[in-house]
Design a protein around this nucleic acid. Sequence first.
RNA 1: GCGGGAGUCGCCUAGUCUGGUCAAUGGCGUUGGACUCAAAAUCCAAUUCGUUAGUCGAUUCGCAAGUUCAAAUCUUGCCUCCCGCACCA
Length: 951
Amino acid sequence: MVVEERVNFKAIELKWQKKWADSKLFEAEPDKSKKKFFVTLPYPYVSGFPHLGHSYTYSKGDVFARYKRMQGYNVLFPFSFHCTGTPIVAAAQRVKEGEPTQISILKQIGISDEEIKKFADPVYWTEFFPVKTKEHLIRAGFSVDWRRSFITTDLNPHYSRLIDWQYLKLKEKGYVVKGSHPVVWCPKCKNPAGDHARKEGEGITPEPMAVVLFKSDDGKIFPCATLRPETTFGVTNLWINPDLEYVEAKVNGETWILSEEAVSKFEMQKFKVEKLGVVKGSKFIAVSVRNPVTGTKVPVLPGTFVKSNFGTGVVMSVPAHAPYDYIALRDLKRTPQKYNLSSVMLKSLNPISLISIEGFGENPAVEIVEKSGIKDQHDKEKLENATHEIYRKEFHKGILKENTGKYKGLKVSKCKDILLKDFVKNKWVVVFYELNDKVVCRCLTDCVVNIVENQWFLNYGNAKWKKVVHKAVDKIKLYPDSTRKQFHYVVDWLKDWACTREFGLGTPLPWDRKWMIEALSDSTIYMSFYTIYHIIKDRKISSEQLIPAVFDYVFLGTGNVSVVSKKSGIAVDTLDKMKDEFNYWYPFDFRNTGKDLIQNHMTFCLFNHVAIFPEKHWPAGFGLNGHVKMDGDKMSKSKGNFVTLIDAVEKMGADASRLTVLAGGEGVDDSNFDSDLVRSVPYKLENMLEVYPKFYGKGRDNIISIDKWFVQKIDERVRLSTSMMEDACFGSAIQTVMFDMAKDLKWYLYRSGDSANKDIVSRFIEVQVKMLSVFVPHFAEEVWEKLGMSGFVSVAKWPSAGRGKIDKNIDLMEDLIRQSVEDVRNIKSLVGIDKPKIISVFISPEWKYKALAKAMKYKDRSHEIVKILMADKDISVNGKQALNYAIALSKKVSQMNVGLSSISEYKAMIDAKEFLEKEFGCAVEVVKVDKDIKSQRALKAEPSKPGIEIE
RNA sequence: GCGGGAGUCGCCUAGUCUGGUCAAUGGCGUUGGACUCAAAAUCCAAUUCGUUAGUCGAUUCGCAAGUUCAAAUCUUGCCUCCCGCACCA
């Protein structure tokens, strides 16, 4: 059944969205009389509609923009669209081929069969999705200046000119270098296969392997690929699969024996390979080869466990440290006759230990094989586990022994890289990359490792560059600050970044146009473009006019303006306007995104900024947030709990859904989108919408005691929520502004018997609506209008707390009353008195206040307190009561705080007398306890804890 | 494995830096009550256990130890979860 809502929130949202647009409320122009604040969000990749995860990130940006605007800042909040890279091209290709999954994805977002055909062209994606995304964001109420939006890639030549300039600048400074690197490669697509482009093998990366070159007497090389080059010191023999066909090939000028599969791998990795012939593995059995590292001779032995598709098909055997090798050798020794091997020779092959490790003796592999009861080499599962365990332990905790020469005493984990370098230098090994698991491209082709040559890199490994970036990390404001460590870590961890591709949408590298600048690498300083893009459009500047000198002048202030103007054909005043606008807005102050972008986008942004811009234009603030969960579950298409932004807005309302997503989490923790909460929000708003106009500007003029409390409370809430807003802690701010303040008002109305003070309640409403407006802007505008206020609340002044000192007594008095009400209620229900005749409130006798004060004074001498108190005649005159109270105090005084004086306590209760009488429908008497009162309840009274008696 | 972050009473969250005012904030949910022909909304109350004239007691803040008169908070060890570990959005 559809619940009929009295308030049509959708109509309200549309109404205000139109008004904002009509009045150009969020279009920002430089204004030197105002401080500026620049909020940006990384532009989304436009291969689909924004979802709740985007909504969270964007809502944070929008809330901060709105908050700063209300604080009187001139706020620039632009938005753009990212088209660079391969996914759109690949997806378009799939549409072209009629691939069903891709088609159904488009269908799901409501695209007709007819229109889907158009998506076979990548360009159509870059037209369709930006338009839609903009529509959705407008519909969600984001306060964006849309005049400055653009798309990336050569489809937008203006943007490409910015990227040209950026790369020329980086090259000039030596930050773009040439090199080669290994990638996971799809031979069919002729392109690197990143994680998202794989059907199988997510997270697999090329692992460098050492290929140890064993040489036979007749000069043939037996290349053994290993992840543990250090174990070459312990080789007893090689393994070759007797049943496999091996290839004899000229590799880099020498004759190698290797598997068929390995041949193409080496070719791919730029080795010169020339096939000579095919030989059965069994032919090499018992051949003697020389270990290049130790110089000793070892035999080649048959091992049927050797695979042809991993490494080279030839393996070195280290029985002391590799369970497989040990067990295979043991098996072989038991059946030497099978391959006509000399058992004397086999017997002489004993494990050579080279790594010592705590908890193991001489030969760890031997021990673990015996311990886990592995029978033979076919006991695969146990063998895998044992291998894994030994490898891990030896790597992290193992120390190399005497027989490793200069490496002795070093930890394996520490010396591995050095050792490998040495081996390569001595030509004992060559490096080759391998995938340690199967990787299948989305096109269903098996992937291999390819060495991409003549690749361009951003030189992020450069230590000097890193040093400057560290400085930028130290300087930047981070929301939350706890991410700073992570940033420093990432800066150190980053190596050179391959910044070009051969395939996909993008901007060509200006000096080597066969390369396309890759998607992360064109997204680092584009925020600067927001400051001038609308001018470029307005003044119809062509992309050809945007020569590097223009950017030099506008962004860096170098060059002579009339020369630049002449060269570019851009008028001097236009150039100056762009320059002024850039200098006014830059740098950006708050750039918010998900925490997963720390290790690329955000850090890249820092690197490129410090490389190109002077320190005053380095990024000033980053915000990071977690992901969004749906009712505690990870959002995913397969779970069916995947919600797009537009769906959320249409079904639950723009205000309700952004409030819910922001209330669900804070900092880098994941936000939980609570579907119960989102349902309850409209009711709350509706209530305010109805009630606030009735209270606003109405009420009594005189001041009563509860008014003072309320005034103070409002200030407290304003102060608190403002400081939360400053730290971008929006979840907490919502808590305060939405829920805590609602509670305050409730109590205030209750205490004042629904008779509010006109000025105070009006101030409350104004303050709350203003603060709420950053979270639920449409609703806030609507209330604002209903209250008869002029202008938009979106640009009203953020409330400031009154300057009056906070009187703690006022809070304490109110707490006392609240507590008393609760107590009376409790007692009533416990005793079952429904309609009491009289309620007596007993205020503690004077001497107890004195005792308490004295005890507080001697807090840290709790053992002596009883003695000290009883020495005071005013106290001790009360006899046993005094003693009991003194003992009680001595126990708890260390945990007590300063409370009310007896006068304040009495006054508070007298003030509240009328309220209490009304509340409980009977007479209330407030009595100060003295000697003459003997009531049990009266004797119980203590400071801040009046005695209560109900009759 | 490495680096970063986190684990609080059904769920989500506050509190942790700076130990005591903490059986622990607020929301949501749940239960009972009021209102209603009824439902939603709204309002009131309860929501670790036991006990009770408002009290008191027990056991709690991932687990286990430790420091302290006193630990959700400090220290150490362990367990679990999330993010990242790259050539790409």
